[in-house]
Design a protein around this nucleic acid. Structure first.
Length: 292
DNA sequence: ACAAATACCTGTAAGC
DNA sequence: TGCTTACAGGTATTTG
C-alpha cells in the first residue's frame, strides 16, 4: 500500500527527527528483510556508529544518507512501517530492524509480510542514487509535462501498466494510478503513445495535482489501517479517492457507477463513462467517420 | 516490445 | 466453531 505520498510523508517526518543524529547501535534480526546482505550482522557493521546526514526519496524508496557517501535504503513493500519510539516501549511482532539513535529515540522497521527490505548500499550509481536502485525512472512528484511526454514517448504500452512501471516513472502504485487516470479522464487501456497534446496535458496535470494533494493529506490509510506515519498517525487522502475502492459507487463527475476490473491479479477502478476507451472526437464540419 | 503469470509473505475476512 | 479460500499488491523473474 505505501506509494509515493505515504513514503514522502515518512521522509519528511524522518528528516525532521533524524538529520544530524548518530546511530548508536543497530539490532537486526530480520533475515529476509536484510536479504541483500549475507548476514544481518554485515548490515549492522556497516551502519552502527554512523551519522545520518540526510533523508532522501526516489519513488517508493527511502534513502537515509550516512556521512560522506554511504546510504541505507528502505523499501516498505506492502506492509512495511517505519516507526519512531522510545527505547523500552513495547515492541510489536514482525519488528525486523531497530536503530538506536543518539539522544534516546529508536527507529523501528516493522513488516509482517516481509515484502519490504532494508540494506546498506554498495555505493552511488547513476544520478547519485544508490546503485541498487539507479534503474528507477524520474520521480513522479513534481514530474512536469515534458517529463511525462518523455515517459509516454511513442510507447504502445497501455497507460496503467506504464504508470506502474518504476523504470518509466517512480512512485506510482495501484491506488494513485487509478486516481490519476480518473482525474485525467483517461482509460487505463489507452496506448500511452497515442495521447493527443491535450490529453498529455491532462495526464501531467492530474499526476501533479493528485500526488500533491495526497502528500498534503499525509497519504492514504485504507480500511485495514495498515499505513501509519512514523508516529502512528493515519493518512487522510482516502476521503478524496474518486476511483480506487469505489466499486459500484457513483462517479463524482458523471454519476455512473465506478467499475472494478481484475487484471494481472490486481484491481483497476475506473469510470467507463468519463474515461472512454476511445477519444470521442468533437464534431467537425468535414464530417465523416473513422479518423485513422 | 509487450503481456501475463508466478513467486515471495501474512493478516484479515468471507464462505461453508 | 473451525476450516478453507480469496484478497490485498510491492518487485523481480519467467514464459508466451
Amino acid at each position: 500500500v505505501p506509494e509515493l505520498p505515504e513514503v514522502e510523508t515518512v521522509r519528511v517526518d524522518l528528516a525532521a527527527t533524524l538529520t544530524g543524529r548518530r546511530i548508536d547501535s543497530v539490532a537486526a534480526t530480520g533475515e529476509r528483510t536484510l536479504r541483500r546482505h549475507r548476514r544481518p550482522a554485515e548490515f549492522v557493521e556497516r551502519v552502527a556508529g554512523r551519522r545520518l546526514v540526510e533523508v532522501d526519496r526516489r519513488g517508493k524508496y527511502l534513502i537515509l544518507r550516512l556521512d560522506p557517501v554511504d546510504a541505507v535504503v528502505v523499501h516498505l513493500g506492502m506492509s512495511g512501517q517505519l516507526r519512531l519510539a522510545e527505547p523500552g516501549s513495547p515492541t510489536v511482532s514482525h519488528t525486523h530492524v531497530v536503530w538506536a539513535l543518539e539522544g534516546g529515540l529508536e527507529l523501528r522497521f516493522i513488516d509482517p509480510r516481509t515484502f519490504g527490505e532494508v540494506f546498506a548500499s554498495l555505493g552511488p550509481g547513476r544520478d547519485r542514487l544508490p546503485v541498487e536502485i539507479d534503474h528507477l525512472g524520474p520521480d513522479a512528484l513534481g514530474a512536469d509535462r515534458a517529463t511525462l511526454a518523455g515517459v509516454v514517448g511513442r510507447r504502445r504500452t497501455r497507460l496503467k501498466p506504464l504508470l506502474l512501471d518504476q523504470r518509466a516513472i517512480a512512485g506510482i502504485g495501484n491506488i494513485y494510478a487509478d486516481e490519476i487516470l480518473w482525474s485525467a479522464r483517461l482509460h487505463p487501456d489507452r496506448p500511452a503513445g497515442g495521447l493527443s497534446p491535450r490529453e498529455l496535458t491532462r495526464l501531467a496535470d492530474a499526476c501533479a495535482e493528485v500526488l500533491a494533494a495526497a502528500v498534503a493529506a499525509r497519504g492514504s490509510s485504507l480500511p485495514d489501517l495498515q499505513y501509519r506515519d512514523v508516529w502512528g498517525g493515519l493518512g487522510g487522502y482516502q476521503a478524496f479517492h474518486r476511483a480506487y475502492g469505489r466499486e459500484a459507487q457513483p462517479c463524482a463527475r458523471c454519476g455512473r457507477p465506478i467499475r472494478r476490473r481484475a487484471d494481472a491479479g490486481r484491481s483497476t477502478y475506473f469510470c467507463a463513462s468519463c474515461q472512454p476507451r476511445r477519444t470521442s472526437r468533437p464534431r467537425s464540419a468535414s464530417g465523416g467517420g473513422g479518423a485513422h
